[in-house]
Amino acid sequence: MESTTFIAIFATIVTASTPLLFAAIGELVVEKSGVLNLGVEGMMLVGAVSAFAVSTGTGSPYLGIVAAIGAGGVMALLFGILTLTLLANQVATGLALTLFGVGLSALIGQGYVGTPATGLAGIQIPWLSDIPVLGGLLFQYDIMVYMSLALTAAVSWFLFRTRPGLILRAVGESHDSAHAIGYGVIPIRYMAVIFGGMTSGLAGAYLTLAYTPLWTENMTAGRGWIALALVVFSTWKPGRLLFGAYLFGAVTIGQLHIQGLGVAIPSQFLSMLPYLATVIVLVLISRDQLRIRLNAPACLGKVFHPSA
Protein backbone atom coordinates (compact mmCIF):
# COMPACT_ATOMS: atom_id res chain seq x y z
CA MET A 1 0.00 0.00 0.00
CA GLU A 2 1.23 3.46 -0.82
CA SER A 3 2.09 5.58 2.15
CA THR A 4 -0.35 8.34 1.12
CA THR A 5 -3.22 5.84 1.07
CA PHE A 6 -2.18 4.51 4.43
CA ILE A 7 -2.05 8.03 5.85
CA ALA A 8 -5.50 8.78 4.45
CA ILE A 9 -6.97 5.64 6.01
CA PHE A 10 -5.31 6.35 9.33
CA ALA A 11 -6.68 9.91 9.29
CA THR A 12 -10.19 8.58 8.67
CA ILE A 13 -9.83 6.25 11.64
CA VAL A 14 -8.73 9.12 13.86
CA THR A 15 -11.73 11.27 12.89
CA ALA A 16 -14.12 8.35 13.41
CA SER A 17 -12.70 7.65 16.89
CA THR A 18 -12.46 11.18 18.24
CA PRO A 19 -16.18 11.83 18.97
CA LEU A 20 -16.41 8.51 20.79
CA LEU A 21 -13.38 9.35 22.88
CA PHE A 22 -14.74 12.76 23.84
CA ALA A 23 -18.12 11.41 24.93
CA ALA A 24 -16.71 8.38 26.70
CA ILE A 25 -13.95 10.10 28.68
CA GLY A 26 -16.46 12.49 30.29
CA GLU A 27 -18.90 9.70 31.06
CA LEU A 28 -16.03 7.78 32.66
CA VAL A 29 -15.51 10.62 35.14
CA VAL A 30 -19.27 10.82 35.77
CA GLU A 31 -19.48 7.11 36.49
CA LYS A 32 -16.35 7.17 38.65
CA SER A 33 -18.21 9.64 40.86
CA GLY A 34 -21.04 7.12 41.17
CA VAL A 35 -23.53 8.62 38.73
CA LEU A 36 -24.87 6.88 35.64
CA ASN A 37 -25.96 9.38 32.99
CA LEU A 38 -27.55 7.64 30.01
CA GLY A 39 -28.26 10.99 28.37
CA VAL A 40 -24.95 11.12 26.43
CA GLU A 41 -26.68 10.87 23.05
CA GLY A 42 -29.01 13.76 23.89
CA MET A 43 -26.22 15.96 25.22
CA MET A 44 -24.14 15.21 22.13
CA LEU A 45 -26.98 16.28 19.84
CA VAL A 46 -27.55 19.54 21.68
CA GLY A 47 -23.81 20.18 21.66
CA ALA A 48 -23.68 19.38 17.95
CA VAL A 49 -26.44 21.77 16.95
CA SER A 50 -25.15 24.53 19.25
CA ALA A 51 -21.68 24.27 17.79
CA PHE A 52 -23.09 24.39 14.28
CA ALA A 53 -25.41 27.32 14.97
CA VAL A 54 -22.76 29.45 16.64
CA SER A 55 -20.05 28.51 14.18
CA THR A 56 -22.14 29.43 11.12
CA GLY A 57 -23.56 32.49 12.89
CA THR A 58 -20.25 33.99 13.95
CA GLY A 59 -17.98 32.38 11.37
CA SER A 60 -15.73 31.09 14.12
CA PRO A 61 -15.64 27.34 14.74
CA TYR A 62 -13.77 28.02 17.97
CA LEU A 63 -16.75 29.93 19.36
CA GLY A 64 -18.79 26.94 18.20
CA ILE A 65 -16.66 24.67 20.35
CA VAL A 66 -17.19 26.96 23.34
CA ALA A 67 -20.95 26.98 22.72
CA ALA A 68 -21.04 23.19 22.56
CA ILE A 69 -19.18 22.92 25.88
CA GLY A 70 -21.70 25.32 27.42
CA ALA A 71 -24.75 23.63 25.94
CA GLY A 72 -23.61 20.16 26.99
CA GLY A 73 -22.90 21.52 30.47
CA VAL A 74 -26.38 23.02 30.79
CA MET A 75 -28.01 19.75 29.69
CA ALA A 76 -25.94 17.91 32.29
CA LEU A 77 -26.84 20.48 34.94
CA LEU A 78 -30.50 19.70 34.25
CA PHE A 79 -29.74 16.03 34.78
CA GLY A 80 -27.88 16.91 37.98
CA ILE A 81 -30.78 18.91 39.39
CA LEU A 82 -33.21 16.08 38.69
CA THR A 83 -31.09 13.22 39.99
CA LEU A 84 -28.82 14.77 42.61
CA THR A 85 -31.07 17.40 44.16
CA LEU A 86 -34.53 16.01 43.43
CA LEU A 87 -33.29 12.41 43.74
CA ALA A 88 -34.97 11.13 40.57
CA ASN A 89 -34.04 7.73 39.20
CA GLN A 90 -30.81 8.11 37.21
CA VAL A 91 -31.59 5.57 34.49
CA ALA A 92 -35.03 6.99 33.74
CA THR A 93 -33.76 10.57 33.87
CA GLY A 94 -30.85 9.76 31.57
CA LEU A 95 -33.15 8.18 29.01
CA ALA A 96 -35.48 11.16 29.26
CA LEU A 97 -32.51 13.46 28.72
CA THR A 98 -31.69 11.66 25.48
CA LEU A 99 -35.28 11.96 24.23
CA PHE A 100 -35.32 15.59 25.25
CA GLY A 101 -32.00 16.24 23.52
CA VAL A 102 -33.23 14.66 20.28
CA GLY A 103 -36.27 16.95 20.23
CA LEU A 104 -34.55 20.08 21.44
CA SER A 105 -31.69 19.78 18.96
CA ALA A 106 -34.19 19.26 16.12
CA LEU A 107 -36.04 22.38 17.19
CA ILE A 108 -32.90 24.52 17.43
CA GLY A 109 -31.58 23.08 14.20
CA GLN A 110 -34.69 23.69 12.08
CA GLY A 111 -33.21 26.69 10.32
CA TYR A 112 -29.83 25.05 9.79
CA VAL A 113 -30.85 21.93 7.88
CA GLY A 114 -29.35 22.05 4.44
CA THR A 115 -26.79 24.70 5.30
CA PRO A 116 -23.26 23.69 4.46
CA ALA A 117 -20.41 24.90 6.64
CA THR A 118 -16.69 25.00 6.39
CA GLY A 119 -15.23 22.55 8.85
CA LEU A 120 -12.33 22.92 11.21
CA ALA A 121 -9.13 22.88 9.22
CA GLY A 122 -6.19 20.71 10.15
CA ILE A 123 -3.37 22.60 11.76
CA GLN A 124 0.09 22.53 10.29
CA ILE A 125 2.74 22.39 12.95
CA PRO A 126 6.06 23.92 11.86
CA TRP A 127 8.80 21.30 11.45
CA LEU A 128 6.70 18.38 12.73
CA SER A 129 4.11 18.42 9.92
CA ASP A 130 6.93 18.45 7.34
CA ILE A 131 8.48 15.17 8.45
CA PRO A 132 7.89 12.66 5.64
CA VAL A 133 5.17 10.06 6.39
CA LEU A 134 5.24 10.62 10.15
CA GLY A 135 4.29 14.28 9.72
CA GLY A 136 1.27 13.34 7.65
CA LEU A 137 0.40 10.51 9.98
CA LEU A 138 0.52 12.38 13.27
CA PHE A 139 0.69 16.12 12.78
CA GLN A 140 -2.04 17.23 10.39
CA TYR A 141 -5.23 16.98 12.41
CA ASP A 142 -7.65 19.65 13.57
CA ILE A 143 -7.25 21.00 17.06
CA MET A 144 -10.03 18.90 18.55
CA VAL A 145 -8.19 15.64 17.89
CA TYR A 146 -5.27 16.82 20.01
CA MET A 147 -7.73 18.14 22.60
CA SER A 148 -9.34 14.73 22.95
CA LEU A 149 -5.99 13.05 23.51
CA ALA A 150 -4.83 15.68 25.97
CA LEU A 151 -8.14 15.43 27.80
CA THR A 152 -7.78 11.67 28.14
CA ALA A 153 -4.29 12.04 29.59
CA ALA A 154 -5.48 14.78 31.92
CA VAL A 155 -8.41 12.70 33.18
CA SER A 156 -6.13 9.75 33.82
CA TRP A 157 -3.70 11.94 35.72
CA PHE A 158 -6.47 13.67 37.67
CA LEU A 159 -8.26 10.49 38.73
CA PHE A 160 -5.26 8.45 39.74
CA ARG A 161 -2.53 10.95 40.61
CA THR A 162 -4.26 13.80 42.42
CA ARG A 163 -6.02 14.20 45.73
CA PRO A 164 -9.28 15.64 44.27
CA GLY A 165 -9.30 12.65 41.92
CA LEU A 166 -8.99 10.31 44.86
CA ILE A 167 -11.89 12.07 46.60
CA LEU A 168 -14.02 11.79 43.46
CA ARG A 169 -13.33 8.09 43.29
CA ALA A 170 -14.10 7.74 47.01
CA VAL A 171 -17.47 9.38 46.44
CA GLY A 172 -18.17 6.84 43.72
CA GLU A 173 -17.06 3.90 45.83
CA SER A 174 -18.95 4.71 49.00
CA HIS A 175 -20.88 7.93 49.18
CA ASP A 176 -21.87 7.27 52.80
CA SER A 177 -18.28 6.94 53.94
CA ALA A 178 -17.18 9.95 51.91
CA HIS A 179 -20.03 11.93 53.42
CA ALA A 180 -19.13 10.76 56.94
CA ILE A 181 -15.55 11.94 56.51
CA GLY A 182 -16.93 15.32 55.50
CA TYR A 183 -16.70 15.42 51.69
CA GLY A 184 -19.54 17.09 49.87
CA VAL A 185 -20.90 14.17 47.86
CA ILE A 186 -23.53 16.19 46.02
CA PRO A 187 -21.28 19.13 44.93
CA ILE A 188 -18.59 16.72 43.77
CA ARG A 189 -21.10 14.73 41.75
CA TYR A 190 -22.50 17.92 40.27
CA MET A 191 -19.04 18.85 39.03
CA ALA A 192 -18.45 15.40 37.57
CA VAL A 193 -21.85 15.37 35.84
CA ILE A 194 -21.32 18.82 34.33
CA PHE A 195 -17.85 17.83 33.14
CA GLY A 196 -19.42 14.81 31.44
CA GLY A 197 -21.95 17.07 29.75
CA MET A 198 -19.22 19.38 28.51
CA THR A 199 -17.26 16.58 26.88
CA SER A 200 -20.46 15.17 25.35
CA GLY A 201 -21.00 18.64 23.94
CA LEU A 202 -17.46 18.50 22.53
CA ALA A 203 -18.21 15.13 20.97
CA GLY A 204 -21.24 16.66 19.29
CA ALA A 205 -19.22 19.67 18.18
CA TYR A 206 -16.70 17.35 16.57
CA LEU A 207 -19.48 15.84 14.45
CA THR A 208 -20.83 19.15 13.14
CA LEU A 209 -17.52 21.01 12.88
CA ALA A 210 -15.02 18.42 11.72
CA TYR A 211 -16.43 14.96 10.99
CA THR A 212 -19.31 15.95 8.69
CA PRO A 213 -19.67 19.75 8.75
CA LEU A 214 -23.45 19.87 8.40
CA TRP A 215 -26.51 19.61 10.62
CA THR A 216 -29.26 17.04 10.25
CA GLU A 217 -31.60 15.72 12.90
CA ASN A 218 -30.38 12.73 14.86
CA MET A 219 -27.00 12.87 13.20
CA THR A 220 -25.21 11.24 16.15
CA ALA A 221 -26.81 7.98 14.97
CA GLY A 222 -26.19 6.10 18.21
CA ARG A 223 -22.62 7.20 18.91
CA GLY A 224 -23.59 8.27 22.44
CA TRP A 225 -24.66 4.74 23.23
CA ILE A 226 -21.42 3.32 21.87
CA ALA A 227 -19.51 5.73 24.14
CA LEU A 228 -21.50 4.47 27.13
CA ALA A 229 -20.66 0.88 26.26
CA LEU A 230 -16.99 1.72 25.80
CA VAL A 231 -16.81 3.05 29.37
CA VAL A 232 -18.02 -0.24 30.79
CA PHE A 233 -15.86 -2.41 28.58
CA SER A 234 -12.80 -0.33 29.36
CA THR A 235 -13.42 -1.18 33.03
CA TRP A 236 -13.38 2.55 33.81
CA LYS A 237 -9.72 2.99 32.81
CA PRO A 238 -8.83 5.96 30.58
CA GLY A 239 -5.98 4.14 28.82
CA ARG A 240 -8.17 1.24 27.83
CA LEU A 241 -10.91 3.65 26.86
CA LEU A 242 -8.55 5.36 24.42
CA PHE A 243 -7.59 1.98 23.04
CA GLY A 244 -11.24 0.89 22.81
CA ALA A 245 -12.36 4.06 21.01
CA TYR A 246 -9.57 3.76 18.43
CA LEU A 247 -10.12 0.04 18.01
CA PHE A 248 -13.80 0.72 17.32
CA GLY A 249 -12.88 3.43 14.84
CA ALA A 250 -10.29 1.21 13.13
CA VAL A 251 -12.64 -1.74 12.68
CA THR A 252 -15.45 0.57 11.47
CA ILE A 253 -13.23 2.02 8.75
CA GLY A 254 -11.49 -1.28 8.08
CA GLN A 255 -14.75 -3.04 7.28
CA LEU A 256 -15.67 -0.35 4.73
CA HIS A 257 -12.33 -0.94 3.00
CA ILE A 258 -12.81 -4.70 3.05
CA GLN A 259 -16.17 -4.21 1.33
CA GLY A 260 -14.64 -1.87 -1.23
CA LEU A 261 -12.04 -4.49 -2.06
CA GLY A 262 -14.85 -6.92 -2.80
CA VAL A 263 -14.01 -9.50 -0.14
CA ALA A 264 -16.90 -11.96 0.10
CA ILE A 265 -17.98 -11.44 3.70
CA PRO A 266 -21.62 -10.47 4.36
CA SER A 267 -21.77 -6.71 4.92
CA GLN A 268 -24.23 -7.17 7.77
CA PHE A 269 -21.56 -9.16 9.57
CA LEU A 270 -18.95 -6.52 8.78
CA SER A 271 -21.25 -3.81 10.13
CA MET A 272 -21.49 -5.74 13.36
CA LEU A 273 -17.76 -6.30 13.52
CA PRO A 274 -16.72 -3.03 15.25
CA TYR A 275 -19.04 -3.77 18.15
CA LEU A 276 -18.07 -7.40 18.31
CA ALA A 277 -14.31 -6.84 18.05
CA THR A 278 -14.30 -4.03 20.60
CA VAL A 279 -16.35 -5.95 23.13
CA ILE A 280 -14.29 -9.13 22.72
CA VAL A 281 -10.94 -7.39 22.96
CA LEU A 282 -11.90 -5.29 25.95
CA VAL A 283 -13.43 -8.27 27.73
CA LEU A 284 -10.26 -10.26 27.07
CA ILE A 285 -7.90 -7.63 28.41
CA SER A 286 -10.01 -7.26 31.52
CA ARG A 287 -11.17 -10.82 32.03
CA ASP A 288 -10.05 -10.85 35.63
CA GLN A 289 -13.44 -10.66 37.37
CA LEU A 290 -11.97 -9.37 40.61
CA ARG A 291 -10.30 -6.46 38.90
CA ILE A 292 -13.54 -5.45 37.19
CA ARG A 293 -15.29 -5.44 40.51
CA LEU A 294 -12.45 -3.40 41.97
CA ASN A 295 -12.68 -0.89 39.14
CA ALA A 296 -16.45 -0.55 38.92
CA PRO A 297 -17.59 2.28 41.17
CA ALA A 298 -19.53 0.53 43.94
CA CYS A 299 -22.13 3.28 44.22
CA LEU A 300 -22.77 3.56 40.46
CA GLY A 301 -26.35 4.63 39.83
CA LYS A 302 -27.34 4.69 43.51
CA VAL A 303 -29.27 7.65 44.86
CA PHE A 304 -27.58 9.50 47.69
CA HIS A 305 -29.26 11.51 50.39
CA PRO A 306 -27.24 12.90 53.30
CA SER A 307 -29.86 12.00 55.90
CA ALA A 308 -30.07 8.35 54.94
Partner: peptide, 19 residues
Protein backbone atom coordinates in the same frame (compact mmCIF):
# COMPACT_ATOMS: atom_id res chain seq x y z
CA UNK B 1 -19.96 -0.46 0.08
CA UNK B 2 -23.01 -1.15 2.24
CA UNK B 3 -23.48 0.97 5.35
CA UNK B 4 -26.61 -0.87 6.57
CA UNK B 5 -28.40 2.35 7.36
CA UNK B 6 -30.57 4.81 5.43
CA UNK B 7 -29.27 7.72 7.38
CA UNK B 8 -25.98 8.02 9.29
CA UNK B 9 -24.00 11.02 8.04
CA UNK B 10 -20.79 9.91 9.77
CA UNK B 11 -20.84 6.40 8.38
CA UNK B 12 -21.87 7.55 4.89
CA UNK B 13 -18.99 10.04 4.91
CA UNK B 14 -16.56 7.36 6.06
CA UNK B 15 -17.75 5.06 3.29
CA UNK B 16 -17.14 7.83 0.75
CA UNK B 17 -13.63 8.36 2.12
CA UNK B 18 -12.87 4.63 1.97
CA UNK B 19 -14.06 4.42 -1.64
Amino acid sequence: VWVNSWFDPGKEGDAAKAL
